[in-house]
Design a protein around this nucleic acid. Structure first.
Lengths: 352, 352
DNA sequence: CTGTTAGCGCCTTCAT
DNA sequence: ATGAAGGCGCTAACAG
């Protein structure tokens, strides 16, 4: 028997008022006489009373809970985002219920179903592919307010960064540093619209620099990424620069370089994507495109909370494209093998 | 209007049965005739009906929600643990509500109060100091099932590892490698019983090795850890080995060493604590005491879920001390300045 | 300003 | 095996 039911009537009795007054004292303090309010407050405090959230939710149809759907917390970028979400939600008086989906569509659908049944007031989600997500369809069908994070799609409300522009900028910087053999590394491309977006940017950047783009290096299993990349770097005609679609891959790329006897950045420049905090404490410090993960979480919460307060779900028009920043770390440098000294890097640093 | 109320009566009407039967069909399928069950299932499916969690919670006094109180997700060790908790909880049919407290006691208390009001069935928490936690008092007072994670305390149910033994083992290994000036680095000691436990182990290990223990290096602010440690390593009489009370500090210690011109492990051996996944992909790969964070989360959930099913809260007697493992990475090596070649390392590798 | 009343959606005896 | 009825704790009209 973990719970002794302590309800509004107990407090009402203890304070010598009616239950309705206690309710009002909690929800609309100004609608009750100061003296009565104090009376109720004291009674509640003495008994240690807290309004029952379930009853309140049942009655008002508002739970003050936000659902959060993320691929995994094993990638710090999502952990940082969830931290931002948690803080912002707490500040707005919302609790959160996170569900991890491992980048799998089936898990995403189940997560949405579960959160729908749990009466959440809204959802924040990072899905593998918004364009063909059954989970999102279900969500729209339910008419529940939601915002995508990291994903970008014209028909959904999204908090994202312009990954394509960022990737193109990375390539431009590498090209300016004298690199010509610039390879891109990603996880399973089909599993992430973000990786696809970055790959488009990479191709665009390569075209702009009039460089041949070698085949994309797809590393399906993170556990074997170091081995796969080591093998890749040992093969003839290896690139002098690696653009990795996320920081975890970049870190493994650096490790692979070391195992292969290549010094970073002297023999191989490595640039990541995400800007996870730990990257800046590594040696070499990670060069990367930093997304404001914490802020993305915060903004997603605020968009959602405001929309809920306004009474209608966010729409694609509410989407926000947040600025990214290039962290010029130590894992990226000029091409030591270049025939000519590199020209200065372009000055553009942020999205418009 | 995000929700069209779709209740048990709608389904009952659609199926041509009573609401009670629908309820039973969902909760006790065997208590209803197979034909009726199918009828209800079809009706529910056609209407897209899902039982309302709040109403169910209100009625049954069971929410199937677990509260989780953690310091921060910015430290991967907690993110990994939460991932484990989330997976295990999902498997057991529980949702989770995490709250982050930044190592602050006031936040811990508020988190517990919030989760109590949210009607969670149980809580998993990592607090800064179980011995004098007001939050835990409150929790015991409420009689709600809970388990501590990472913390170890004789009067609470805990899932932990023997940090003291682990720390002593680290020192023994370093001593065996010829190190005599072994320093320990931690965050604010007062803010973490785990750091205190590890410090005790360090002191014990130093005494056992008949070595003088230099003063503890306390690094209160993580942001300035690299600077602080760089200064420390530049001072005369610097240690040849650093035992850091967590991996994040160890990574910063390695960075500080590089900035100071010290090679790791040649000039400075660095050992961390936690075993965060990313540590194994760094160069040098992190030597550390690995805690089974994922498993700790899983076990905490299982302990709690079983206790809830049994009907009474876990007690201190249910505590579990999980085995740790020493990851022999590349950030730790023999003392190059030692007068004699080091003896072989001890063979013990795990807790009993 | 305060009290009375009537459910929110569900589960669970108690009858049938 | 199924149905009828009451109430979990709370809030929102409506009276007074």
């Amino acid at each position: 028997m973990p719970k002794e039911s302590l309800n509004i009537h107990n407090v009402a009795a203890h304070a010598g008022v009616s239950a309705a007054t206690v309710s009002r004292a909690f929800n609309f303090p100004d609608k009750v006489a100061p003296a009565t309010r104090a009376l109720v407050a004291r009674a509640a405090h003495e008994l240690g009373y807290q309004p029952n959230a379930s009853a309140r939710t049942l009655r008002t149809q508002r739970s003050r809970v936000l659902g959060v759907v993320l691929p995994t917390l094993l990638n710090p970028v999502f952990a940082e985002c969830l931290q931002g979400i948690a803080l912002a939600a707490a500040q707005s008086g919302y609790a959160i219920v996170p569900v991890m989906t491992r980048y799998e569509d089936a898990q995403e659908r189940q997560a949405v179903a579960q959160l729908l049944a749990a009466n959440v007031d809204g959802m924040i989600l990072a899905v593998s592919n918004p364009a063909e997500s059954r989970a999102l369809e279900r969500l729209r069908g339910a008419g529940l307010p939601y915002v995508l994070a990291y994903n970008a799609h014209p028909e959904h409300p999204c908090i994202s960064v312009d990954g394509e522009a960022a990737a193109a900028e990375v390539v431009a910087r590498l090209a300016a540093l004298g690199h010509t053999r610039i390879a891109m590394v990603s996880g399973t491309l089909a599993a992430s619209d973000r990786a696809q977006q970055r790959y488009r940017g990479y191709l665009r950047g390569m075209a702009a620099a009039v460089l041949d783009a070698p085949a994309l290096v797809e590393v399906p299993f993170v556990a074997s990424a170091v081995d796969a990349l080591s093998r890749y770097l040992r093969a003839p005609g290896r690139p002098t620069a690696l653009f990795c679609s996320n920081d975890l891959l970049a870190i493994r790329g650096i490790r692979a370089a070391h195992l292969t006897g290549l010094a970073v950045p002297r023999d191989l420049a490595v640039i990541g994507f995400d800007g996870i905090a730990i990257g800046q404490d590594l040696t070499p410090a990670l060069s990367t495109i930093a997304q404001p993960s914490h802020d993305m979480g915060r903004q997603a919460v605020e968009l959602l909370v405001h929309a809920i307060a306004r009474g209608h779900a966010p729409t694609a028009g509410d989407s926000l494209c947040l600025p990214y920043r290039f962290y010029d770390g130590e894992s990226c440098g000029p091409n030591a093998l270049a025939p000519h000294p590199p020209c200065p890097v372009p000055t553009q640093g942020e999205t418009p």
